[in-house]
Simulated scan of single mutants.
Amino acid sequence: MLDAAFFVRWMTAAAAVIDREADRLTELDSPIGDADHGKNMQRGFTAVVKTLTAEPPATPGAVLTTAGRQLISSVGGASGPLYGTLLRRAGKVLGEADRVSAEELRSGLAAGVDAVGQLGGSAPGDKTMLDALVPGVTALSASFDAAAEAAGQGALATVPMQARKGRASYLGERSIGHQDPGAASSALLFAALAEVAK
């Protein structure tokens, strides 16, 4: 069973990996976006860790809703609302329980992913963060490692796609050949989760 401390460690590990990969995320964002995804995510997750460290929430659900709220208020562009919605909805589904199972976490994240799809009006195959989130959440029923692997593969699979949503969609065919930065950062969330689960 996973307690609040596990979720704080997950968000902290996510902040660390995003910090390490920030330049790469911004590089991915340069040809098809605003060239600020890495910086934005870095700023958001730094704020998340600061908030969670100052006043650690008592439940897994509260950790995720707090993190989501913080991302919405501190990340620019579309990423803040999308990531914030993912975590807040997941936290809401987890409710007030002191501990949750991996399967409950999967259900919470699945609800979060649905909410992201509704907010962005997107679906898998549109070359967005959903292309990493959906396979990641699906594979969570097998293991944390399987989820990280599936999300990573999902992010790579966006390279040959033509973007149908978001800023990259304005480029039409020129979006082909570039990895979606949101899918790349989503895969990092699952990598951090697998790392903490070890």
Results as ranks from 00 to 15, higher is better:
residue 34 D to W: 04
residue 39 K to S: 13
residue 43 R to L: 07
residue 51 T to F: 07
residue 117 G to S: 09
residue 77 G to E: 07
residue 119 L to E: 11
residue 111 A to P: 04
residue 66 T to Y: 03
residue 82 L to Y: 00
residue 96 E to I: 05
residue 29 D to L: 00
residue 49 V to F: 01
residue 71 L to N: 06
residue 38 G to F: 00
residue 62 A to F: 09
residue 63 V to R: 00
residue 73 S to W: 07
residue 72 I to Y: 06
residue 90 A to Q: 06
residue 112 G to E: 06
residue 99 R to I: 03
residue 46 T to S: 14
residue 29 D to Q: 03
residue 115 A to F: 11
residue 111 A to Y: 06
residue 40 N to V: 03
residue 70 Q to A: 13
residue 49 V to N: 02
residue 121 G to R: 12
residue 89 R to S: 13
residue 116 V to D: 05
residue 33 G to P: 05
residue 98 D to M: 11
residue 109 L to W: 04
residue 97 A to Q: 15
residue 24 R to V: 10
residue 101 S to M: 10
residue 52 L to M: 06
residue 92 K to M: 11
residue 81 P to E: 09
residue 42 Q to D: 10
residue 55 E to H: 12
residue 50 K to M: 09
residue 99 R to Q: 15
residue 37 H to P: 03
residue 38 G to A: 05
residue 91 G to H: 05
residue 35 A to G: 10
residue 55 E to K: 13
residue 97 A to W: 10
residue 41 M to T: 01
residue 31 P to M: 11
residue 58 A to H: 08
residue 33 G to I: 03
residue 73 S to F: 10
residue 74 S to H: 13
residue 45 F to D: 00
residue 84 G to I: 01
residue 73 S to V: 12
residue 106 R to D: 07
residue 51 T to H: 11
residue 72 I to W: 06
residue 96 E to A: 15
residue 64 L to E: 03
residue 24 R to M: 09
residue 101 S to L: 10
residue 87 L to A: 08
residue 61 G to H: 02
residue 53 T to H: 11
residue 111 A to C: 10
residue 27 E to P: 07
residue 22 A to I: 01
residue 116 V to N: 06
residue 32 I to Q: 02
residue 38 G to S: 05
residue 59 T to N: 07
residue 78 A to H: 01
residue 77 G to T: 05
residue 61 G to D: 03
residue 106 R to L: 09
residue 37 H to F: 03
residue 66 T to Q: 07
residue 108 G to F: 05
residue 115 A to N: 12
residue 32 I to G: 01
residue 91 G to A: 07
residue 96 E to N: 14
residue 26 T to E: 06
residue 85 T to N: 05
residue 28 L to P: 00
residue 122 S to G: 15
residue 36 D to E: 13
residue 94 L to T: 05
residue 59 T to F: 08
residue 43 R to V: 04
residue 35 A to P: 06
residue 79 S to T: 10
residue 114 D to N: 12
residue 78 A to L: 08
residue 55 E to D: 14
residue 99 R to L: 11
residue 25 L to V: 03
residue 42 Q to K: 14
residue 121 G to Q: 11
residue 59 T to Y: 08
residue 39 K to I: 12
residue 60 P to M: 08
residue 50 K to A: 15
residue 27 E to W: 11
residue 110 A to K: 12
residue 34 D to M: 09
residue 106 R to C: 10
residue 83 Y to V: 05
residue 42 Q to A: 09
residue 45 F to G: 00
residue 80 G to M: 02
residue 89 R to F: 07
